[in-house]
Structures are given as structure tokens and as C-alpha cells.
Design a protein around this nucleic acid. Structure first.
Length: 107
RNA sequence: UCAGUCAAACUUGUGGUCGCGGUUUGCUUGUAAAAGCAAAAUGAGGAAAGUCCGGGCAUCAAAAGACGGAGUGCCGGCUAACGACCGGUGGAGGCGACUCUAAGGAAAGUGCAACAGAAAUAAACCGCCCGCAAGGGUAAGGAUGGAAAGGUGAGGCAAGAGCUUACCGGAAAGGUGGAAACAUCUUUCGUCACUGUAAACCCCACUCGAUGCAAGUUUAAGCGAAGACAAUGUGCUGUCUUUCACGUCUUCCAAAAGCAACGCUUGAGCCUAUUGGCAACAUUAGGCCUAGAUAGAUGACCACAUGACACAGAACUCGGCUUAUGUUUGACUGAAUUU
RNA sequence: GGAGACGUAUCGAAGUGGUCGCAACGAGCUUGACUCGAAAUCAAGUUGUCGGUUUACCCCGGCACGUGGGUUCGAAUCCCACCGUCUCCG
């Protein structure tokens, strides 16, 4: 099952309709999906860093989501990185992601 | 020991747990295309970057020439090619190791040289000298400037001046060395005036068709419709000509927008040795196959090695350049101290 | 991935070798006039920073046209290398 969000149309739909949640270094957009599946896209702009740093951040986020044990609703998500997200520790990042999903799933 | 110059190498490794990309093999499902599971080996760089040069490759039907435009610019070599590289020459810098150098032509022509200064490529303001004066001689000294008709000393003169002479510089001719750039020597020239700028136009020599893998090909399906110009037409996209080829272009509709494939990785490839060459590089022999993604594959955790900590991520591909950056090693130079 | 363009006061923008950019011109800002008050209009002024001088202002000088080199007597302008911003493509 493919959990990736790929098309630019899908991203802009989530930005437009999604609910926002923030932490210090991340923003999560979430919106209900019509499929019985969840999909996540990662948006990391050029402001964040050079290509290798952006790549690494994306991998870490993907790893965190893969290993996570909290329940995921059938939503479409977009995780947007803020400036400074490449500098923080893996465990710190993990906490922030968990926090975001907890908030999003409560509502 | 301190300060410095040049060159070279490496860019974690091994084992374990979970996870990702393509490849191969096996099994399962499926009419097929393909999908799923398992195993194995394998999976970013020295700069992958900037895109500053040069090739391969692809398309423009094929080919040749002229003009325009762009680039290069001491000499020779190397190369697929280059503005790169190697060796040498001249010049500049450094005590030195060594480094830097867009380094053809200003006597083919044109342009420009503000301000200052008497005068800017042309000479006479102040001055000096002759002369009663008119006028004439002169360019030593003055001031300006980036630049003022070789420089310094001596002689000479009415005062001066290559006017004469010594040295330095310059030009021409010839000899010698060198493959050449050039070096060096000899002789002659004082009629030895002709500044700078070509990273101003330009001249000379050499090179270059244009567009870039988002090139382009296939799946692919329409002898669709309308219009324009039609052999005086169209054709490699700066312009033109010749050969040559052929109908060409625009709009609309249908289909398609890649969550399809090919291009896409075996290549001027890498490693080791040999031979030629001062070297760049080339020859020969043997061995090796080493990423091909498409929202874009390498991450997380643990152990050991003192311990993994800089810059940084392939996107058709190769040769350079430039910029960013960690560690280590070698050779050499200068200074100080000790033996 | 590839191909291009542009960086000059607070902002837009001219200048494309020569008396320091009196930084043109426009907008903005400040002050004054007009008005009961404001807007509009009219007039005047207005780059930054460092140093000197000064209680302070005035005044004087240096550096700045994205940054750093080079060519030239002289560079915002010509050449080279970097930095930043923006646009285009099947």
C-alpha cells in the first residue's frame, strides 16, 4: 500500500482544506481522505537547507512515521518543515511528530 | 622549534536489528500485461555543486560557399576536443623554496586622452642669448600632468641643443646557438621626430551551423475539417547564394499529459604491469563490470576499532576549470637554538 | 535537469569610461504656507557609514553603484571569478 502523496494538485488541496497544527519546527496539514488509506507528503523548501540536508530531514520524518505506533486515521497529511528543523536531534523530531499527530487525531 | 613553499593520498571499516531503490534467482496469483513474497550480492562525490569552457549523443532531409557574429591570441607539444594540461621563452613579485602572467599588431587606418598646463601629438608662456628697437636664435631651467621630441656626466657655445664625446638605452643589418619563441655577439646609425589606449573600433592568424536528454523515439490510433501561400513557394532558427529535396504553414476537433516504455548506462571506462617520452600523454599485455531513481532510493539504534565530528546528495554522459571543505603524509626553503 | 535576465538613496528608476554620484527624474519622508482641522496643492529640504572638529549643529575628509580581483592616467560603466534575486522550457 502506497502511503505517499505525490501530485501537486493533492498538495494544494490539502493546503487549502486541511487543518493546521504547529510545533517549533514543523507544521502538519490534515484533511479527511475518501479512500480507506492514509497518505503523507513531505514539503521541505529550499529555505531549509541545501539538498543533502533536505534529503536527510525527509528520510528522518519518513522513518519516524514508519516506526510510529500511534493510530493513523484515513486522512491525507502534509508535513511542512520550518527553518531550523535540520539542526535538531532525531529524538526531539520524533516527539514533535507524535505531538502533531496526537493533536490532529483528537479533533 | 617557528615561519613558509610545493606535491600526493584518504573521505570510515567490521558485525547485528528494523526499513528503502533497482538487478538476478526461486515460489505464488493472473488469459495476459503485471503484481506479491523470499533469498543473494549490490546501491552517491572529491567536489556529485557553480554551469564557466570543450567533446560524445540526438533532432533540424543532405551538402558546399560568402558575408555577418562569437571566441582564442609568446613558442612547441599533448588530446576526441578545449580557453584545460605539459615543457620552454620573455616580463613581474619573493632573501629563498617558488609563484603569477588576456604576453600578437599602436611604423595600415579611425576614435578617445576630462581637469591641470603655454603647449597633449602639437610646440614656445615664463625664461636664456643676440639686438637701441623691430626682429631673430634656443629648448638648459620652471610649472602641469599618467604622458611634454632618449637619460646621466664632461666638453662645447652668444645662449643652447646628439652639436661632440663616454656609459646606459634605442633602431637596422649580419653572424652564432636553438625545432621555435628567443638568447647572445659584431658592425653601422646622432635624420636616434612619430606618447598612451586594441579587457576602444580595428588589422593579422587560427577555431566555431543551430538547438540541448524538458534533445528526441515508440506505444499511436485521422488517408478529419477550415483557412493562407503554392514552384516567382517552402526547406538546418543572423543574412544570402548554389547543388539538392519536398508541398509547407496556421487554427479547430478527436486521442494523449505519464501514477507508459525506450533514450539510461560498457565507457575517449577503471585497476595492475610493461615500453617510449623531461613531462602532459601514448603503446602493449592481463584482469574487472562498479547506482540508474522519477515527490526522486542510503535512515534509525547498538557494539568494537582512542573514535567518526568538515564541505556536501547522481538525474544522459565524459575531459577540464572555479568555488566550499576535514584529516594525514612526503619533499624543499628561510630564521633561531643545541650537539 | 537545462537555458536566460537583473542587482545604483527608504522604494521605483536614469546614468554605460572623465571636473568625487551638487547621484538626474518620480514616489516616499520632514518642515513651512494654505485650512477651524485634515486631504489635495504650492515652496524648501532629505543617502548611509567611519574619522576629525564641536556641548550640539555646521563644516572638512575617507569608504561605499551586490562582493572581490584585473585592464586603464582614471571604472557604476570594460574584463574575470564569486554572492543574491527573478523568469522561461516537454
Amino acid at each position: 500500500m502506497d502511503h505517499r502523496l505525490k501530485k501537486e494538485k493533492q498538495f494544494s488541496y490539502v493546503y487549502r482544506r486541511g487543518k493546521k497544527n504547529h510545533t517549533d519546527h514543523l507544521t502538519l496539514f490534515s484533511v479527511e481522505s475518501k479512500f480507506r488509506n492514509y497518505r503523507i507528503g513531505y514539503a521541505i523548501s529550499k529555505k531549509i537547507g541545501k539538498a543533502n540536508k533536505r534529503n536527510k530531514l525527509k528520510r528522518r520524518l519518513r522513518e519516524i512515521v514508519r516506526k510510529s505506533e500511534w493510530p493513523k486515521n484515513f486522512h491525507n497529511y502534509v508535513i511542512v518543515a520550518k527553518v531550523g528543523a535540520t539542526e535538531i536531534e532525531y529524538k526531539d523530531l520524533q516527539k514533535q511528530v507524535k505531538n502533531l499527530f496526537d493533536k490532529a487525531n483528537q479533533k
